[in-house]
Design a binder for these strands. Structure first.
Length: 364
DNA sequence: AATCGGCGCAACCGCGTGGGC
DNA sequence: TGCCCACGCGGTTGCGCCGAT
């Protein structure tokens, strides 16, 4: 396909933009709109290619851009979405108002990725590296499974939620069911535990997070993408969520297998990507507000609550150890008093698809 | 004070995709 | 239907800043 040359044209300037160039571009766009980016440089009197102008505008000059430090909430959102979407920066950026994909990409590569690596998680695969950056044994071996599960769950829920949008438009039943589920969730022991974690002194991170709640009574298996740890529709009849390997140890690289059928059987904490930042257009308040804040307490919530604090990872690890999974050899049992929170998460992970899950789906 | 290396960010590059003709 | 074009996206590079030596 013939592609016209862009910046390799002669007499087109490259490199950093000057103040004068910025002013020209800004003035032109404000007065005329950008229109065709290709035609813009000539009209604006700039010796730049249209592509360069577009980039400068979208990443820097645009008035609705928020610059500077990322808030903990934004970090959490990025981690969550990256676990779900991978390096789809524009998609991630679409859920972070006023942030550009370029800025998010840079922030991920320069900050968040390193922080994940530091605690022993491969930022690309979200699998355990076996050791944290400081050489400590891999607490992340277990967390990676959570990540995979979380990713899988979100992907499926996002898809289902999208489908449900159409249904929701004409079905008040869904909202009624959702209201019931929200009540159930509010009584969830796990959420209480996690909220308690969130409210610990010194940790004021608001774990408000994208979540909507929908009920999908049909046993309709969700589809998936390769590489996410999910199974395909064709595997929908497979066994319920299970872990490869018969014991409870956590071999590096082990894969989770999910049953799509069982997954849809569960009463979803359903969250659609579109619902992020509390935007759940198909939900009216108070349902949308109820929907918010349900997911962030999961894997990413843990990350944000705990990143950079090895003690807390140990805390998770030990809690995990004191639960019903074994850890790597040599791990010390440092006590049981803090096991409840991790066990709550663990229970949830271990039985995410059970309609009788004691974690998120307590019956009133 | 000079040098070096790491870090962070802005910008560039090449590819994919969708729309118009 | 196929070609061309414009745009968006993700990966990569270049460069300035800053701390360590």
């Amino acid at each position: 396909m013939g592609r016209s040359p862009c910046c390799d044209k002669v007499n087109l300037k490259k490199g950093p933009w000057t103040l004068e160039e910025d002013q020209k571009l800004l003035a032109y766009v404000e007065n005329h709109g950008h229109g065709s980016w290709r035609a813009l440089p000539a009209k604006a009197g700039l010796q730049r290619c249209g592509k360069s102008c577009r980039l400068r505008w979208t990443n820097y000059l645009r008035p609705d851009i928020k610059r500077g430090e990322f808030s903990p909430q934004e970090e959490k959102t990025i981690i969550q979405l990256h676990a779900l979407l991978g390096n789809r920066w524009s998609a991630i950026a679409s859920h972070l108002p006023k942030r550009t994909d370029n800025e998010i990409k840079n922030y991920w590569n320069t900050h968040l990725k390193k922080r994940l690596a530091k605690v022993g998680i491969d930022p690309c695969t979200l699998k355990a590296t076996g050791n944290t950056a400081d050489g400590r044994p891999g607490t992340a071996a277990n967390l990676s499974h959570m990540a995979q599960w979380e990713s899988a769950r979100l992907e499926a829920e996002a898809r289902l939620a999208r489908e449900s949008k159409l249904r929701a438009a004409s079905s008040s039943m869904i909202l009624q069911q959702q209201q019931q589920q929200q009540q159930q969730m509010r009584s969830s022991s796990c959420l209480e535990v996690l909220r308690a974690r969130e409210n610990t002194p010194g940790d004021t991170i608001d774990l408000e997070s994208p979540t909507s709640t929908f009920s999908f009574p049909e046993n309709r298996p969700p589809t998936t993408e390769s590489g996410t740890g999910l199974v395909d529709d064709s595997d929908a009849a497979a066994a319920p969520a299970s872990h490869q390997g018969s014991d409870n140890s956590e071999p590096e690289g082990a894969e989770w297998i999910f049953s799509g059928r069982d997954r849809t059987d569960c009463r979803l904490t359903g969250f659609s990507v579109e619902a992020f930042n509390g935007e759940a257009p198909w939900l009216s308040e108070p349902y949308a507000s109820q929907a918010r804040g349900q997911f962030g307490a999961g894997f990413a919530g843990m990350l944000l609550g705990d990143l950079g604090e090895q003690k807390t990872w140990d805390h998770c690890r030990d809690s995990h150890t004191n639960g019903h999974e074994t850890f790597a050899d040599g791990e010390e049992d440092e006590g049981e008093e803090s096991s409840n929170d991790w066990n709550g998460i663990l229970n949830w992970v271990n039985s995410p698809f059970s309609t009788s899950s004691p974690v998120f789906f307590d019956q009133d």
